[in-house]
Design a protein around this nucleic acid. Structure first.
Lengths: 199, 199
DNA sequence: TTGTTTGTTCTCTCATGGTTCTCTATTCTA
DNA sequence: TAGAATAGAGAACCATGAGAGAACAAACAA
């Protein structure tokens, strides 16, 4: 979604003057401030800003428009520790948080794990990478999931669920798929994003 | 596909001034800046750049339009477009911006490219991944760099600089290292981070 | 209640921006 | 030296952006 120049001007004006308004400005006030003579013209721009999610409408009430809260920015995702993409578990009690690109976020709660091991190397998931996991207990076949096996081992694998068995596929020619009974495997999340630092 | 001298000039101007534009420039503005009197003339050059994949067309819509994300995230790294990790270039004059984890940022100016092609697949850099590039014109041997080859082709490769030659190493058994004279290769940045979405 | 404010919808108009076209001048090249 | 490629000018076309203003309905104030 994109804005025209005029819409940006108006948005900038709103942002710059947000603290000068004790209450949200009316359209007429904005028209005067912006040098417009027609409320209708302004209204079109405002609608565009609402469409873009930059401004909150105040439906039906007569009090102008309210800026969207900036608060929700930069919340961060809990960083839960290292996942052994080959063997056992590590999960950490005190989540630090890290900033994660919005593009990687799913709608549901997410957390970040650091991968250790090379079992998913052929999917481009390397030792030391950070993975963004959407918290869920079910998955679609073909998803890459965080799976808790026999209550003692957490791994990152591609999942294939069949009647009576669950197969966890590594992506490494040196490793074989592992077959479990459904009650031995508990899905803890689905892979939604990945990032890596080359510093 | 190679560019004429004038097209290179115009492209260079766009790249150099990309950060001076708060909006993508209109044709008229570019004409003025470039000393052209006819939009039609400029249009031909722009079309050539689009053809070459150097610039993003803005079909039907007027220029002077900015992405919302840019307005909202006052931070953010310019998203410059797609880099062909196998063959030719795409780099875009009108940067969008994306939010990127601070962990991936270097001290210097950075930008984000989207990888297309599989030439670095064995390094875990897949088609469609986003790479964070630190803007620099020198690199250490072993770095993965964005290199402009012969002024017409940009690629992402591991670099090895020797007296009298520069070798660009792909990470794909199907592809061979490429050897160039030093003046054929221009380093445009060094890989600092990577992220990927599985949505 | 009545009248005013405010938000909304609509149509109309004009300016701007991108595109296509033709024509001309200059440079390059076989 | 002739033809091709490159560059620019400028006219014409059409979609989009932007604004004006009228009309209307809901909310508010008295």
């Amino acid at each position: 979604m994109s804005l025209t120049r005029r819409q940006m001007e108006i948005y900038d004006y709103l942002v710059d003057n947000a603290d000068h308004f004790d209450h949200p400005p009316t359209h007429d006030e904005l028209c005067r401030a912006l040098g417009l003579r027609s409320r209708g013209s302004l209204h079109k721009h405002i609608q565009a800003l609402i469409q873009a999610g930059l401004v909150q409408p105040m439906d039906r009430t007569h009090r102008g428009i309210r800026l969207v809260e900036e608060a929700r920015a930069s919340e961060g995702i809990p960083f839960l520790g290292t996942i052994a993409a080959g063997c056992p578990i590590e999960a950490i009690a005190q989540p630090e948080t890290m900033q994660v690109p919005e593009e990687l976020l799913a709608g549901r709660p997410c957390y970040v794990l650091q991968v250790s091991g090379e079992s998913m190397i052929e999917e481009g998931i390397l030792d030391g990478d950070y993975v963004v996991i959407e918290q869920r207990d079910t998955a679609t076949n073909g998803d890459i999931v965080v799976a808790l096996v026999n209550n003692e081992e957490v791994t990152l694998k591609r999942i294939e669920q069949q009647p009576g068995q669950v197969i966890l596929h590594p992506a490494n020619v040196g490793l074989n798929p592992m077959v479990y009974a459904p009650d031995e495997v508990q899905i803890q999340g689905v892979l939604r994003g990945l990032f890596r630092s080359y510093r």
